[in-house]
Design a protein around this nucleic acid. Structure first.
Length: 338
DNA sequence: TGTAGTCTCTAGCCCTAAAT
DNA sequence: ATTTAGGGCTAGAGACTACA
């Protein structure tokens, strides 16, 4: 006996398939006599019936799925965000399909094509570049979309981003209050909104506080990765720049710095203080534990999912964007300069 | 006779294997 | 090469019953 269908349930319960369908769907259950509904539900359970969402979407033209486009699945920043997204999607009857683009535009295009062919009802996108033709195109085609963490320029799409400027300010003020005057910034990629926003805020804060405003102390990384962070710090050290603290564009870049400190025998925080950004999981387990800027990851994900559900329900609604507040988490990687 | 309340009937969603 | 059938499900139309 193959897996039971709605018809099997209906027959066993002595009702028409359409009635069984209504009884089993909470949204339409009210159209069916309560006792009948109860009977159908019981029969469905005893047969081990599982609704077939493919057949359902054949009729309803709705898939109940949302595409989650993640740039780098190995970045621990994302699991808590996805968790927040699922917390909101699930009770709304949706589930997320995750794809990973590895920051590769071709891969991204292919993955998004795949999601669309699977009839996802919307996209939550964490891969936004400042200039992002694909996202512009999707937006023109009317694909419901929400940006998380980053946002492209000039595309009128709902987004949920951290308040980078304030976060940077907190980090730099913390270092300044410890007595640091020459702070280096290992910035995120210049093609990303986050990288640019944080770099700009860094420069502004450094000036406001009257610290060394030396362009050679700000180095953009090619990627948001440990390797890129390590390479950037090496180039600063090799150039003979003098600085007593590093403000990293994100935690992975800061982690890369740890590698360089180890290989060159530099002590942290004794000789060099380091501050990260994002507060991804496990930073408190490092030696020394990394001081960083905390982002409410789960809240970001949940808010993104809410914005998307809004956009799906009402496509004409004006794009709403949310800026989430950040906080400084002081751990062991920062101390007064030597 | 009208009207809730409850149920059934029908068609069709999109695609493809099989029949023509 | 073209047509048909059919997979599982549900929206919409409409039928039946009981009761005011």
């Amino acid at each position: 006996m193959s897996t039971p269908t709605l018809r099997d349930v209906a027959e066993a319960a002595g009702v028409h398939a359409a009635t069984a369908s209504r009884a089993l769907n909470p949204a339409t259950r009210g159209l069916v006599n309560a006792d009948t509904a109860k009977r159908v539900i019981r029969v469905a359970e005893s047969l081990g019936y599982r609704p077939n969402p493919i057949a359902r979407s054949l009729k309803t033209a709705k898939s109940g799925t949302i595409g989650l486009v993640i740039p780098d699945l190995t970045n621990p920043l994302f699991p808590p965000i996805v968790r927040g997204i699922e917390d909101v999607l699930e009770p709304a009857g949706y589930s997320g399909l995750i794809v990973n683009t590895d920051n590769d535009p071709h891969r991204e295009r292919a993955q998004i094509d795949l999601l669309r062919s699977r009839q996802v009802e919307g996209l939550i996108v964490a891969t936004a570049m400042l200039d992002h033709p694909l996202l512009e195109q999707l937006h023109r085609e009317g694909v419901p979309m929400v940006m998380v963490n980053r946002r492209p320029e000039g595309v009128d799409v709902p987004s949920i981003t951290p308040d980078d400027a304030t976060g940077v300010q907190l980090a730099v003020e913390h270092l300044a209050s410890l007595g640091h005057e020459r702070i280096a910034h290992l910035a995120g990629p210049v093609a990303t909104s986050t990288g640019v926003a944080r770099a700009r805020a860094f420069r502004g804060t450094v000036r406001d506080l009257g610290l060394a405003d030396d362009p050679s102390l700000a180095v953009p990384c090619d990627y948001w990765t440990e390797e890129a962070g390590a390479a950037a710090l090496r180039s600063l050290l090799d150039a003979g720049e003098s600085f007593t603290a590093v403000f990293a564009g994100n935690d992975l870049i800061a982690l890369g710095c740890y590698d360089v400190l180890a290989e060159r025998g530099i002590s942290c925080p004794g000789e060099l203080s380091i501050v990260g950004f994002n507060d991804m999981p496990f930073l408190d387990k490092l030696a020394p534990p990394l001081t960083t800027i905390a982002i409410p990851h789960q809240q970001i994900g949940a808010e993104a999912a809410r914005l998307l559900l809004d956009a799906i329900a009402d496509p004409d609604r004006a794009a709403r964007s949310v800026l989430l507040p950040l906080s400084l988490v002081v751990r062991g990687s920062t101390a007064p300069p030597p």
